Amino acid sequence: MTDELLAAIAKRRTYYSIGKEAVVPDSRIEQILREAILHVPSSFNSQSTRIALLLGAQHDKLWDLVKETLRKVVNDAEKFKSTEEKMASFKNGYGTVLFFEDQDVVKQLQSQFESYADRFPTWAEHASAMHQFAVWTSLETEGFGASLQHYNPLIDEEVRKTWGLPDSWKLIAQMPFGKPTGQPGEKSFQPVEQRLKIFK
């Protein structure tokens, strides 16, 4: 079982070429997100991570929203072409997972445990990262390709308004996913010996 987990971790890659074809039923995607929300750990068992799943027209709406937001920021029409192509590649996917951290939970912990107050925002980011990794690896195990994007905070307010999400939900990352239509780029590795020290 451990070897299967490690194989899934090794197989997880960044896919930018993705398509709209369904790989598994939507109910399976929902199950993955439910399991992640329930079982991925968080500091002080804060359970501060929030997730929104966008499928179909809702997924398309997100990447149109991101494109129009970036259009206001990127003034050079020539430079915007590459941005537009990138947005189209994400929109080509099957869906997007949005990862948030509930700042009300973070603030409550800060007031409850004042000696750790400055650490809770960082620990919330750790919890989010673990959820992202668990979901990413699980989606890939099911046959999807995914990537992790960070267009926050530029799109935060519009995302909350469009999907009626609480103001306390801070957007951390966006994960477009879909059936792989191309191969991931080559991955290089730094020597493990420089990154891992073992003492006996």
Rank of each mutant, 00 (worst) to 15 (best):
E140M: 12
S111P: 06
L196V: 14
K86H: 10
E35A: 07
I51M: 14
Q112G: 10
R28P: 04
L165Q: 02
Q103C: 05
F80V: 05
K61W: 13
R34C: 06
K20G: 13
D60M: 13
L5G: 08
A77W: 04
T162C: 06
A7N: 12
L5A: 14
W136Q: 04
P121E: 00
K179Q: 09
E4W: 05
G164K: 03
L6G: 05
T141Q: 15
T141W: 11
L154S: 04
S115N: 13
M130G: 13
Q47P: 03
K11F: 12
R160S: 01
G185N: 10
R50N: 05
N45L: 06
T181R: 12
F133A: 11
S42R: 00
G185I: 06
D64H: 12
A124S: 13
D104Q: 15
V105K: 15
Q47N: 09
K161M: 03
V40G: 03
H131W: 05
R50H: 07
L33Q: 08
M175Q: 11
T137K: 03
K179Y: 04
P166E: 01
S111M: 12
A146R: 01
Q47K: 13
T83M: 10
R28Y: 07
S188K: 09
L38F: 10
E157V: 08
A52T: 15
P25F: 11
A117C: 10
S43W: 12
Q110I: 02
G164L: 02
Q149K: 08
Q132N: 05
R34I: 02
T181K: 15
P191C: 06
K170I: 00
A88R: 12
E114I: 15
K79P: 02
D156G: 07
Y94Q: 10
N75C: 09
W169V: 03
T14K: 14
V159N: 00
K91C: 00
K86F: 10
R28K: 13
S128Y: 00
A8E: 08
L98V: 08
D3N: 15
G182C: 01
M175G: 05
T162Q: 09
K61I: 11
I198A: 06
K61P: 13
S89A: 14
V24I: 13
D118R: 15
V40E: 04
R119F: 13
I29M: 08
N45P: 00
D104V: 10
T83N: 04
S147K: 00
E125I: 00
N45E: 02
R12V: 07
K79G: 00
K91W: 03
Q174W: 00
T2R: 12
D104W: 09
W169L: 02
K179I: 02
L98P: 09
S43Q: 06
K161S: 06
E114M: 15
L154W: 06
L6W: 11
E85G: 13
L33K: 10
